[in-house]
Design a protein around this nucleic acid. Sequence first.
DNA 1: GGTTTTGGTCAGCGTCATTGACACATTTTT
DNA 2: AAAAATGTGTCAATGACGCTGACCAAAACC
Lengths: 197, 197
Amino acid sequence: MPDTADGPPTAAPVGAGRNLLFLREEELRLAQDLLFFGYRDFTAGADQILAELDLGRAHHRVLHFVGRRPGITVGDLLGILGITKQSLGRVLTPLIEQGYVLQSTGRNDRRQRLLSLTPKGEALERRLFERQREWVMRAYREAGPVAVEGFRRVMRGLMGAEARGQLERLEQRPRPLPPERPSPQIGRGPGEPPSPA
Amino acid sequence: MPDTADGPPTAAPVGAGRNLLFLREEELRLAQDLLFFGYRDFTAGADQILAELDLGRAHHRVLHFVGRRPGITVGDLLGILGITKQSLGRVLTPLIEQGYVLQSTGRNDRRQRLLSLTPKGEALERRLFERQREWVMRAYREAGPVAVEGFRRVMRGLMGAEARGQLERLEQRPRPLPPERPSPQIGRGPGEPPSPA
DNA sequence: GGTTTTGGTCAGCGTCATTGACACATTTTT
DNA sequence: AAAAATGTGTCAATGACGCTGACCAAAACC
């Protein structure tokens, strides 16, 4: 980029219109690049940990959002992730079987499966979080608080209306704590043998 | 999030240490959410166009970076994308066959295949670009110039050292124009029949 | 009792990435 | 001139992660 940032181009005022347009275009191509490289490297650290455990990014997303909202229903999780039931099943089922995620039946609506993290799941989620935390903290420190606020504003703007609503909801109930003892638990997982229900 | 953004917590100063830590954690979890939702919705528009043409995001990335640096070699492109030769081949070959990308042999090193966009490729790249441009412009306008600068700083910080170098190189030579007439072109593609060498 | 909602599952498909091995032309080195 | 290194293409197999369509069961709603 010829100029650093936002101000008017320091170049000749002749053909400024075209120049402005050019800058706009370069600015936006830069945004594309930044998002591509930035997102890729942001996820790289966690991906590495996941690979060791034969898990993928999709598993991480489930751990993340279940951790963020324990007791979330399958339907809500589907809405947040924006994938199909079948796709979720392929990552959720192994997570349950391997004891990372716990299912319990809903108190009000017994059809619902409320999801929460087991201690093992919390540990893994935290490990992944710490890895990304370091990475983001570095970027935040280098950029400074004002930049961080700007980053947030732009990223919010990049989200669609639906995602903004979901994010709001996520921020509201930070941790609605799951059932203390996930009493009417559901089969599967390495836990007790299928209850004689 | 209990508090809005950056300022110190408005809550009681008692246990401020813990509270600050908590805020840090929530701040960083928010960053994860923002990156997930933001990147997803950022790419959604282009993905839609691509789907109509039976192309994928990987094809877009090739179009983008070849358009950004016409005459790029296969090796350099591999370095930027961070994928393997085989993976690139699977998207690049169709793009060449369908007349989006042009290959020409290197002038200095005739082993090299210099890649550039055909008019058809440029048109598609532009169409995809315009879609994302609108989306990003909206976010930029809503957030304001200061925020945009902050966004850039943070995104740069999220990139690894390698990616920063690549981005620098991309910004330096904005458009090193390909061979005027891509003389020693290479077979394939819907172009002329194999020149009588 | 009938309908809707919530969730699970089977079967098949597409995209985008991987590894490993090999082939070929060209350039560089010895 | 022979050997080694480089740049690229390609075959085969694999895995992760999305999709659609179909169908089933339990619970809730009316």
